[in-house]
Amino acid sequence: MSTGFIFALTGAILFAAGVAGMILIGHLLRRILAFNLMGSGAFLVLVGLAQRQDVVDPVPQAMVLTGIVVAVAATALALALVRKLHALTGQFELPDDVDD
């Protein structure tokens, strides 16, 4: 079992844990953390699987850098929305969808 494969496997587990967190956790800050866990898992798979015979492949690293920027932007937007929601309702959980 190569080191790359171990990284990829860890990444898959982290991804699964992150998705479970995003679906199951009600507290919004924890959900944002779960999203970051999920993203990191995917990045680890991307870098880990691409390692062949210990030759470093620069392309997935460039992709992960881009991915991190996207994840930071998404986290910032989520935090801003949660802050606004907290200011309006005083809660860190989503209210029920009131309609029909």
């Binding site: 991804f15 998705v19 679906i23 999203f35 798979v45 991307l46 699987l49 691409a50 997935p60 992709m63």
Partner: peptide, 15 residues
């Protein structure tokens, strides 16, 4: 979550 699942798919295909 949707684009995360898509990204993991991309990672596997690149692998």
């Amino acid at each position: 979550v949707g684009s995360g699942a898509y990204l993991l798919g991309v990672a596997l295909i690149y692998g």
